[in-house]
Amino acid sequence: MAPKDIDRRTILKSCGVLAMSVAAVGQPGRAEAQVQVAPQLGPPSIATRLTVNGQEVAFDLDARTTLLDVLREHLDLTGTKKGCDQGQCGACTVHVNGRRVNSCLTLAAMHDGDTVTTIEGLASPSGLHPLQRAFIERDGFQCGYCTPGQIMAAAAMLEEARRGAPSHATADLTAVLSLTDAEISERMSGNICRCAAYPNIVAAIRDAAEGGAA
């Protein structure tokens, strides 16, 4: 993955250019004349293949592009939301190879060959996913902006619980895990809902879990 068209020299050279423009104190009009070599320090683009919602996609994009922005800006899958772009809200949650990740915190180029599922890929041709139905029924949202992230996180979380993965709320690590409301809340705490639909989201997840859904 080492970018081939950036080497130590170009980086140093471009730093030099930066330093020069920094030196052009208070005379913005003159800055241009001082810079003779203007290396286009563009980042490399990296060829990447993904399977997104069952479809193979290939792209050659700016190495800085996050998985989130590939989905939203290049594949027009805008169901995955950008709430903070810093890994602090969970709005961007998708599944990568079956596990939930904050897609804003990971570069697309790191996922060559990976399988990604987004909210657009959760429903089946026969209808909505049980979590999606439960969110509607329980009114597990208001503005809807955190909702795709909540639902994707919930789907993966139910799978984690099924495998018996413990959480901070698990009192007895040796007992069979029971998915109490406290367990659901703890495991969903990476997903902020500013509309604060929390009680309804937990109820929806409980319904879906009890229905053997997900």
């Binding site: 169901g79 909210i119 509607i136 949202f141």
Partner: peptide, 22 residues
């Protein structure tokens, strides 16, 4: 009554400002 825009919101079909492709 459940929200009439619920299906759009739970499937990612509701487009917010920055996401519009108009």
């Amino acid at each position: 009554v459940s929200r009439v825009d619920g299906p759009l919101k739970v499937t990612g079909g509701a487009r917010y400002a920055y996401e519009r492709q108009d």
